[in-house]
């Protein structure tokens, strides 16, 4: 549990700010991934649908990884 002096450190505030932004970004990439899955059910193109699902899935994993990475190293 960080004390008040630690909380008021600029580096701690910056870290919190970064983590909040990265968390919101991860949520946004999840929305992109989910919407792509929904739309892939509306339109089915054999190869392109799989490719898009893969790319948006990769984007989601990258965003989550970055959040975890930031949590560890900052």
């Amino acid at each position: 549990m960080p004390d008040l002096n630690t909380i008021l450190l600029p580096q701690f505030l910056l870290k919190s700010f970064f983590l909040i932004i990265l968390f919101l970004y991860a949520v946004f990439t999840f929305v992109v991934f989910h919407q792509t899955r929904v739309m892939n059910k509306v339109i089915q193109e054999t190869h392109s649908s799989t490719f898009l699902a893969f790319i948006t899935g990769f984007n989601l994993i990258a965003a989550i990884s970055l959040f975890i990475y930031a949590l560890v190293i900052l």
Binding site: L22, F28, V32, L66
Partner: peptide, 24 residues
């Protein structure tokens, strides 16, 4: 340096996501 590193990765991921959203 850790913040700069995270910021750069984040920047490129945001650009990629922007491209992805425009594309879809």
């Amino acid at each position: 340096s850790a913040f700069t590193q995270i910021f750069l990765i984040f920047y490129y991921l945001v650009v990629l996501t922007f491209a992805l959203v425009e594309f879809i």
